[in-house]
Design a protein around this nucleic acid. Structure first.
Length: 630
DNA sequence: TTAGGGTTAG
């Protein structure tokens, strides 16, 4: 007899199962295995685990599909210990239950849970391996190991398929290797697979070869939304905002919908290059996706990275759901924009009403302390974070502490702190101390610290530059020149300083002293006029920031054409009165440009926002949000 | 049973 409409077998089984669980007499073997299978199928983890134990106690065994569902359920619930228990049960009794199929499922669980060692151990123990086993193993590995496994699998007579190549390609971090793998992919006729294609695009972008990524895309005959998004994401990651927008427009024209992933990538690109107007336009496209958390986190980040804190805060409080990334983004955004106290207040609110902080949240909070000179608060947090939040200080947190002490002029204390650290100091931590030596003009310690960095990395450009800055700042021109010579001898090049500004949704780039911009002549003239105007307001070029031993007049000339000055003048010339001037820099702002921007903000009655790689400077009415503490 | 696109710091 057929059940009545709407009365599915699933609905019928449930009360029977419940009844059985409530009664003490065990079900007959066939019913017990069926019950186990059903619990596994329904992913009821604790009940299925109990059913498995009970079955095995009675010497009974379940169906392979049931075990496979149970292992998948362990993975879904992140229940590694339960997964291991299933593994032990399957391996017990001579291991007869551990078929290649179930080994592969277990392998996948270990791999996805990040338990690489356990995955490897199981893989090594497998008497037989098929393409799924090899591919699963490859997907857990970095480039070198993935390539080794690929060679071994071919030697073992197992032919890689599109899944295998997709994983191998994704592991490539070196362009030559990537090209080497691309060849057999083409030979095997697998390039047209959309998964392989998106892996190729992502990996070419990651290896810095965007044109190759683009040509893989252009050769695509069947179109696929994810592949479009891969290309948008690839340009976004490389900082190519206008290119990623162009691909987005192209994609829409080709009839594809604008997905959340694509909009998120665009926002990331806008954030990376501080393209606020473009970001606002993407925001307008994103309004329909109210519930998408990742997209809204990216939106928040975009406003923070464009220095628009009021809009960031509005976006933050408007979100219908906020996760640890939303809170961390907002806290770091406030801190980087010189609003340390507000960052700390938000952290207090998070502790009361938000999700538990993670290690990145605490980096943001420590950053807030170090950039506001809140030494005691920072130290208190650092020493209590493990106890309060269960987060063991990592290298990044130690780096923040060195920064905190160094910025506050406690150089000896910072050095002692480094010496006592549990982890080995890396060049980033030493450079933080070297930066503090420069600010506080401690030539002796700077020399020692720079030596330490160059021992770790003899080609570290930053160490040479910072040390030569320290010498130049103390008028030790001979020493500064010697550092420069050492740099030349080792062929270490200084990255040229550049700034850019968005005008009419386009980025205009300026390199120090560069006259290639179409308006270069007019900008130069306007800069001269501006410098004359602000000279009356007290601007005097501070030549200490010129690193070469030049005559004063020459130094002034070098300073005059620092890229941020050119960008500010261009912004003044090309934007509506009253609109803030927003400049982005690849290097940290020099003291003279900082002073220049302060005076211009007052003299021209303009808000100027400069973002360097570490933080923001908001110049309003002759003052900077950093309080001259950077 | 194996592979794809999106968010935070340094």
């Amino acid at each position: 007899m057929k059940p009545p409409v709407g009365f599915s077998s699933r609905r019928r089984l449930f009360p029977r199962l419940l009844l059985r669980r409530l009664t003490s007499s065990p079900p007959p073997p066939s019913a017990a295995t069926a019950e186990f299978a059903e619990l596994c199928r329904r992913h009821e983890l604790p009940a299925a685990m109990a059913a498995m134990e009970s079955l095995h106690r009675r010497g009974l065994r379940g169906d392979p599909v049931a075990y496979s569902e149970l292992i998948k359920c362990c993975l879904k619930n992140n229940a590694a210990e339960d997964g291991r228990r299933v593994h032990r049960h399957l391996a017990g009794g001579g291991g007869s239950l551990l078929s290649m199929f179930l080994c592969n499922v277990l392998l996948n669980m270990y791999a996805k849970l990040g338990l690489a060692e356990e995955a490897r151990k199981l893989f090594d123990q497998m008497p037989e391996r098929n393409v799924v086993s090899w591919t699963t193993m490859i997907s857990t590995c970095g480039e070198e190991e993935a390539l080794n496994l690929l060679v071994q699998m071919i030697r073992d007579g197992v032919r890689p398929n599109m899944y295998t190549y997709s994983s191998v390609l994704r592991s490539c971090s070196d362009l030559q290797t990537l090209r080497g793998i691309h060849c057999p992919v083409v030979k095997a006729g697998l390039e047209s697979d959309v998964f392989v294609r998106s892996s190729l695009i992502d990996s070419y972008a990651k290896c810095g070869d965007l044109p190759s990524g683009r040509s893989v895309f252009d050769e695509m005959s069947t179109q696929d939304l994810v592949v479009w998004n891969s290309l948008i994401g690839a340009f976004a990651q490389a900082g190519g905002t206008s290119e990623s927008v162009a691909v987005f427009v192209e994609m829409r024209r080709a009839g594809f919908r604008s997905s959340e992933a694509a909009l998120t990538s665009l926002l990331r690109a806008c954030a990376g290059t501080a393209m606020l107007e473009m970001g606002r336009q993407v925001h307008a496209q994103a309004v329909k996706s109210d519930a998408d958390l990742i997209l809204h986190n990216a939106l928040l980040d975009m406003y923070c990275k464009c220095g628009e804190l009021a809009e960031a805060a509005a976006a933050f409080w408007r979100m219908c759901r906020r996760d640890v990334i939303s809170w961390s983004t907002m806290i770091a955004g406030l801190a980087q924009n010189g609003r340390s106290m507000a960052a700390l207040e938000l952290f207090e609110a998070m502790k009361k009403a938000g999700p538990p902080p993670n290690h990145i949240t605490l980096v943001g909070v420590l950053f807030a302390c170090s950039h506001a000179g809140l030494v005691e608060e920072g130290q208190k947090l650092f020493w209590s974070m493990e106890q309060l939040f269960g987060i063991k200080p990592e290298r990044e947190h130690h780096g923040c502490m060195v920064d905190l002490l160094g910025r506050a002029g406690k150089l000896e204390e910072a050095l002692r702190f480094i010496m006592k650290m549990d982890c080995e100091p890396d060049t980033i931590i030493w450079k933080s101390l070297l930066g503090a030596c420069r600010v506080h003009r401690d030539v002796g310690m700077a020399t020692q610290v720079a030596k330490q960095i160059l021992l770790l990395d003899p080609d570290d450009e930053g160490a040479y530059i910072l040390l030569s800055n320290v010498y130049a700042g103390c008028n030790q021109w001979g020493d500064a020149e010697e550092v420069r010579r050492a740099m030349r001898d080792r062929r270490v090049k200084k990255e040229p300083g550049c700034s850019w500004i968005e005008v009419g949704k386009e980025a205009h780039l300026f390199v120090a002293g560069d006259k290639s911009h179409p308006q270069a002549e007019a900008i130069g003239k306007e800069l001269d006029r501006l410098i004359c105007r602000i000279a009356d307001a007290g601007y005097l070029p501070d030549t200490i920031f010129v690193l070469h031993d030049l005559e004063r007049e020459q130094k002034e000339e070098v300073l005059r054409y620092h890229s941020e000055k050119l960008a500010i003048v261009f912004g003044l010339m090309n934007s509506i009165e009253g609109k803030p001037i927003r400049v982005m820099k690849n290097l940290r702002i020099c003291g003279d440009c900082h002073n220049f921007a302060k005076i211009v903000s007052k003299a021209e009655n303009r808000r100027i926002i400069i973002r360097d790689p570490v933080r923001f400077h908001h110049f309003v009415d002759g003052e900077c949000s950093c309080g001259d503490y950077w």
